[in-house]
C-alpha cells in the first residue's frame, strides 16, 4: 500500500498538523518509504495469533473510590497560553 498526495493531506488534517503544499511531496516519499519497509509483515503467518494487549501478564490495578485530587485550578491553568477566571480560552467553537 502506498499513499498519494491527497491521502497525505487527509492524514495531516486528521492529525491536526498543517502541511504546506511544498511539504506534501517530500512527506509522501518518506511515508511511502516507511510503508514499503513495513510491507514485509504482510507475508507473516499470524493465523490464530492473539494480538498483544499487555506485554507483562498481570492484573490491572484499581483505585478505591475516593477523592484524592482536585482543588488546584490555579495549578491546572498555570501553564495555559490563554486563561481567564481559571478557564482555558480557545477561539470560539461553533456547535
Amino acid at each position: 500500500m502506498s499513499v498519494d498526495a491527497q491521502t497525505v493531506r487527509r492524514i495531516a488534517h486528521l492529525a491536526r498538523i498543517a502541511v504546506s503544499e511544498e511539504e506534501v511531496g517530500p512527506l509522501q516519499g518518506e511515508l511511502n518509504a516507511i510503508l514499503a519497509f513495513v510491507e514485509q509483515l504482510g507475508a507473516v503467518d499470524v493465523e490464530g495469533v492473539e494480538p498483544m494487549t499487555s506485554v507483562t501478564p498481570m492484573a490491572m490495578k484499581k483505585r478505591e473510590d475516593a477523592v484524592t485530587d482536585g482543588g488546584r485550578a490555579r495549578e491546572i491553568v498555570a501553564n495555559a497560553p490563554e486563561t481567564e477566571d481559571h478557564y482555558f480560552l480557545v477561539p470560539k467553537v461553533i456547535e
Partner: peptide, 14 residues
C-alpha cells in the same frame, strides 16, 4: 465549553 462569555472565545472547564 461555554460560548457566551466573550464574542470570539469559548471558555473551557474540565
Amino acid at each position: 465549553s461555554l460560548h457566551d462569555q466573550a464574542p470570539n472565545l469559548s471558555f473551557v472547564d474540565l
